[in-house]
Amino acid sequence: MSQSSTIDTMTPTRLPGQVRAWASSNSALVAMLLLFAFFGLTSQTFLLPNNIFNIFRQMSVVAVLGIGMTLVILIGGIDLSVGSSLFMAAGISALLLRDGSTAPVAILVGLVAATLVGLLNGLLVEGAGISPVIATLGTLIGARGLALVLMDNAQIRVTDPFFDTIAVTRTPGIEALNIPGIPLIAIIVFVLYIITALLMRHTIYGRMVYAIGGNQTAARLCGIPVKRIKILTYTLCGFYAGIAGMLIAASTGVISPNLGSGSEFYTIAAVVLGGTRLTGGIGRVEKTIIGAFILFMTLNWMTIRRIPTEWQQAATGLLVLAAILIDRLAQRERAS
């Protein structure tokens, strides 16, 4: 058979091939390290531990949104509504806190609200058969509007000791080396990533997500409840958006009407920078955090280099394009 000859002809070039294969399948990590080195060399402040921790904190919201978004993109869908779900969760929690609820109740209700938006997305896409871009575009408009109506179109301050604690808590630092503690928010993000990555690898749900994204028909013929799994995935995405909403409520301390708008685009950018394919079935949750880190480390460096905020937005868009273009060209190189 030709199979054995395949292996034979590949043997001589194995070692350098392996390195190249590793680099091209971990291109996000390679890009991150290269950019990190470049930024470190061109700015002294960039490498300070406190600055790195700042990046962690700045990226936390998009990184958490990115977890759910990766799952949705893996099943071949997309969720444009995460920015609105996040806003809704944060807004409702803030409202409840203002009206005297305790923090656990406020958090629970906020999370449930965002999760319901996710469930609605799932039902619209899988139940009614509306394409995901359009359905989640509808909830993007609707969820933010609904939250704004509930909030009476006004800013709400979050003044709750629990939320404040989340925002300011750090691990003990190392005074002697002038290293500050790691922010609790960053730790929450990392823990969420580790848990989700493990779930994707070791649960039946995770396996089914990859099977559905890779070939929905084949998955269905193997008895996988495709619709239910997809609806569950959209719902999970809403849940993660709710968590992101809690983090943003804690860290900004005030819910203003356009909070989180546009974050869906940065989130998708982070997922794609992490190497997850929009066509579904291929990608890893844990690589999305790399994508998010690339995005926010670049923004951070631009701020340090005193590049005006407006230009940073333009540069970010072009950076995403460049990264994806390089990845595609590398893949093409490998294929030919």
Partner: peptide, 12 residues
Amino acid sequence: IVTLACWIWARG
């Protein structure tokens, strides 16, 4: 992806 990036950078 292309037009999403453009949505960001052109406005920027």
